[in-house]
Structure formats: C-alpha cells, structure tokens
Amino acid sequence: MNLSSEDVAKVALLARLRLGPEELATYTEQINEIIHYVEQLQQVDTAGVEPLAHGVEVRNVFREDRRHESLPREQALGNAPKRNHEAFLVPAVLQ
C-alpha cells in the first residue's frame, strides 16, 4: 500500500482539512511511513476472531426516557464563533 499525494489530498477533503502544497508532501510521506508500519497487522491470523470495540464490553445501557432541564439558549450559544440573539450563524448553506 502506497498513498499518492492525490490520495492524501482526497483524505484531507474527506476530513475537512485544508493542506498547502508543502504540507501535502510532508503528510503524504509521514502517513505512508505509518501505514507501512501498521501493515504488519496483516500478518496476524485473525480468522474467526470477533472485532473488539471496547476493552470492557457493556451492552444495552438504558435509562428512563424522562424530560429534564436542558442548557439555556444563552449558554448554548455562549461559545459560538458567530451568532445572533437566537442562532448560530454560518456561511450560506444553499447557494
């Protein structure tokens, strides 16, 4: 497996990251190095082994479906980079 800089640019777009040309070259090299290193896992025989998503497996944790207090609007908006009196503001979504 070897990723080209086009592959890495595609990953950057998927990850919503903007890379300059120099960064793209650096990350392509570094990510290839890491991918080559983790490639060794392909040698491990995992036939019949179930994937383990959590070390301590907890299943079906339920709680009462009850209404409770939620964050007041002013606090919810408190960290907004851009807002008006009632909403988060973002660049136009529909053109």
Partner: peptide
C-alpha cells in the same frame, strides 16, 4: 485525523480498522 479518516474510508476499513479490532481482542 488524516490517518484515522484513511483507515475508516471506503475500501480500507476492513483491511485496517476491523483487523485492528480483531487484534485488539487477541
């Protein structure tokens, strides 16, 4: 973030992410 996005991306998730979770059980 780039590495994680790649190992979860279509076509590679089984080879990397799922295999890593199996090794995790071992």
């Amino acid at each position: 973030i780039m590495l994680g996005t790649f190992v979860l991306s279509a076509g590679y998730a089984d080879r990397y992410y799922v295999q890593a979770l199996k090794v995790r059980r071992l």
